[in-house]
Each structure stands twice: as C-alpha cells, then as structure tokens.
C-alpha cells in the first residue's frame, strides 16, 4: 500500500508542478505587480492601491469595463434567443436520423480559425462589403457605407460564434428531456405552447444557463473580435488591458485591471452558481 501511495504522488507530481509553476505562480506575480506601480520607466516595489484608484478615477478605463459588460450582456441574450429555436427545432421537429447531421452542419464553421472568422465578418460589413454593396444595388442605400468599427459589429461577430456554441449545449439538454413529460402535459390538456412554457422551458434552463455562462466568460475576456470588428473608438476591457501592456509597458496597471476583470467574472459566477448544475448537461 505504501509503495502504491508513493506511486500515486509520482503520477500526480508532473501535472501539479506544471500548474503551480505556470498558473499559480504567474497569478501570484500578477497580484504582486498589481500593488506595485510604474513611475516613468521605473518599477516601484512598494505596496499601494494606486493602480486600482487610477482605474476607478480614469473614466476611459472604467468605461471600458461598462462597455464590456454591456456588449457581453447583449451578446448573451441575443445568442440565447437565436440559438434556442434552432436547438428546439433540431431536437423535436427534425427526424431522429437527421438530427446529428443538422447539428454537425450548425457547428461546422466553429472550426474556422477564430481570427479569420472575425475577418470574414469584415468582408461582409465593411464599406465595400457584401451588405453595403447589396443594399446599394437594391437601391436601399444611396452610397456605400461601413457597418464595421462599431459595438454592433462586435455583437454580431460574437452572436455568430456563440449561437453555434449555445445551439450545441441547449440541444444536448433538450434531447435529455424524456418525451413522456411532454406527452403527459398534452394528455392533461395542455396546448403546445403551455407544455412548452411549463414543461420544456423550465427543464431546459440548466442547458441555457451553462451555455450563457460560458458565453459570458469567453466574450468578456475576448480581445480579437472587439479589436477587429469593433475598432478603437469604444474600447472593451481586454483592449484597455492590452493597451497598458503594449503601448505603455505598464505591467502593474495591466495586472490590476486583469484582476478586476477576474473579480467581475467571479462575481457573475457566484451570482449564477445555483443555476449552474453542471451534472444536468
């Protein structure tokens, strides 16, 4: 038993050391940097909360956080509203043997490169892009205009990506609902709508919540889509953080802002934790 106990530690050690060295330690370093500060080009190693104060003082930094929250909230709501009917139709109205194909088709573009997917939307939304030119041809627009470089474009790019993800999680949840529940509801005289509102929807809530939470986490932490589609007019949090890193090489400020972002994500997680029953999906 003793030898086997040792064997367990030997097997566990490499993974544990890796996570300690390259995840826990960097995290501690970041926390430490966040209470140091940069003055000129010097790193001042005295603990203070000055970075956090700056973050709350400078409106353009705080605005980035609110802008992030706004874009992410709209993204989550629209993605759920758009993906749910798709998942519902695939799960209940499409014959069983076509469902797998339908689902695979729905998530195929998921495998395009993340960068290239945002760029592809630029082809659609830019001034000479598909939408603008189509509208001009149809006479609905007098001259070409750009739909990119806006929060709306960022949301569109996000909704496109997360509709695929949510269709998958919601579908996985819907097919687990026993058809007997719906049959029972209909036997007892419920209309299709009533059986949906009182039976299917509540039972599919776990799938919605988990999908929505993953969407929230991935969208609020994403730099690529806002940078490519949203442009630089209204920054989101990841853009503001990278601005500290690249333009100003201000690692302490970037650390503090990263921790603020993590705090926000954790707060949302705690607030929605009772809805996130992972075992239900």
């Amino acid at each position: 038993m003793n030898r086997r106990g040792l064997a367990g530690w030997v097997l566990l050690a490499p993974a544990l050391l890796w996570v300690m060295a390259f995840f826990v330690v960097p995290f501690a370093v970041m926390a430490l940097y966040s209470v140091w500060r940069r003055e000129g080009t010097q790193l001042v190693r005295e603990p203070s909360l000055v970075n956090y104060e700056t973050f709350l003082d400078k409106s353009y930094l705080l605005d980035a956080l609110f802008n992030s929250l706004e874009i992410t909230a709209i993204t989550v709501v629209l993605s759920v509203l758009f993906a749910y009917p798709l998942a519902y139709i695939l799960a209940f109205l499409v014959p069983r043997r076509w469902q797998r194909l339908g689902l695979i088709l729905a998530i195929l573009p998921f495998w395009t490169s993340y960068l290239v997917r945002s760029y592809s939307w630029l082809l659609v939304l830019s001034e000479n892009g598909v939408i603008s030119q189509t509208l001009v041809t149809l006479g609905l627009l007098s001259e070409t205009m750009s739909f990119a470089n806006s929060n709306g474009a960022t949301v569109l790019g996000f909704v496109h990506f997360f509709t695929m993800l949510l269709a998958l999680t919601i579908y996985a949840n819907l097919v687990q609902i026993s058809p007997n529940y719906r049959r029972a509801a209909e036997d007892l005289g419920a209309s299709r709508l009533q059986s949906f509102i009182h039976v299917v929807l509540p039972l599919s809530l776990p799938g919605i919540m988990i999908g929505a939470f993953i969407t929230f986490v991935l969208a609020i932490g994403d730099y690529v889509t806002p940078q490519i589609l949203g442009g630089n007019r209204e920054l989101v949090m990841p853009q503001a953080i990278l601005l500290q890193v690249q333009r100003r090489a201000d690692f302490p400020m970037a650390s503090a802002m990263s921790l603020v972002l993590m705090l926000v994500i954790s707060a949302v997680f705690l607030a929605s934790a009772r809805w996130l029953k992972m075992d239900r999906v």
Partner: peptide, 21 residues
C-alpha cells in the same frame, strides 16, 4: 480543483500572467 482551475480564467489573463512572469 487546482488542476481544473485554469479553465475558469480567460486566456488573456493567463497570457498576461505568463508574460509578466
């Protein structure tokens, strides 16, 4: 829990942590 923890942190933050370290 520790092994699963990186899953809950944005790639951006993991990247910045590594860059600074």
């Amino acid at each position: 829990w520790l092994l699963m923890a990186p899953l809950s942190v944005s790639y951006l933050i993991i990247g910045i942590g590594l860059l600074i370290t």
